[in-house]
Amino acid sequence: MSATAAAPAIPEPDLAPVDAILAGYPQTETSLVQVLQDVNRTFNYLPCHALEKVAASLGVPLARVFSVATFYKAFSIKPRGKVIIRICTGTACHIRGAPLLVDEFVRHLGIRAGETTPDMGFTLETVNCVGACAMAPVVIAGPRHHGGLSPADVPDVIQGKSDDD
């Protein structure tokens, strides 16, 4: 599973925000998931050294931190692209054609779900329902929700176009 095999080496980011995040929570294991949420949101993934910092600060074994970091779907331990494209593959979206959208994104971006383009531009992910089922099939590209898509709309979504542009 060498998803980002072709990706250039990413410099370890500045970890200063991690201290700020840790300062906002009680220094116990109970805070682990919440801290990782914030770290993941700040960096778009969980940098390895950030996890070491979190482990030391909360007094949790590093192995336990990794176990939590790899259990939850919201977390990524690999750097992710600038734009994260999340295709909903929940039931409502599935029967309204989500698998076809996945195929189209894979075709256009040249990566599989869970992977990042070599230029770090896009990460393709599938998610199980984003709660906008009435507009199935749904794709979230960066901050934007797109509903009622058909395979032919895929290039526009990648280019960041939307109906009201």
Binding site: T89, T91, A92, H94, N128, C129, G131, C133, A134
Partner: peptide
């Protein structure tokens, strides 16, 4: 948590 895909009432 509303994990059931296709349900969004709790949201």
């Amino acid at each position: 948590d509303e994990g059931d895909p296709g349900a969004f009432k709790d949201r």
